[in-house]
């Protein structure tokens, strides 16, 4: 139930934003997180941005995940 998916903010109009979930665009509300700019990453839950995601840390995690997958791949060999 508490699933929240990161998305990139493409455009903002009043208290709504269009966000990009890796190619899928959706209109969401900024009703509980208004300090959002274009190109920010936000966590989206039930049609609302609930928090910002730090881009650098998000990218770092993605990098670690990739490394972990590489390690597992090496082990399987």
């Amino acid at each position: 139930m508490c699933l929240a998916v990161p998305a990139k903010v493409k455009s903002i109009e009043k208290n709504m934003a269009v966000v990009d979930f890796g190619g899928v665009y959706k209109r969401i509300s900024l009703g509980i997180l208004s300090d959002v700019k274009q190109n920010d990453y936000v966590l989206v839950h039930a049609g609302f941005a609930i928090g910002k995601v730090k881009q650098k840390e998000a990218e770092d995690t993605l990098k670690v995940l990739k490394e972990l997958k590489d390690v597992l791949k090496d082990e399987r060999r």
Binding site: M1, C2, G31, I32, H45, A46, G47, F48, I50
Partner: peptide, 13 residues
């Protein structure tokens, strides 16, 4: 239904 993740979205609604 929901916890603090969800309830603010309903308050805003």
């Amino acid at each position: 239904v929901g916890f603090e993740t969800t309830s603010p979205t309903v308050a805003a609604t």
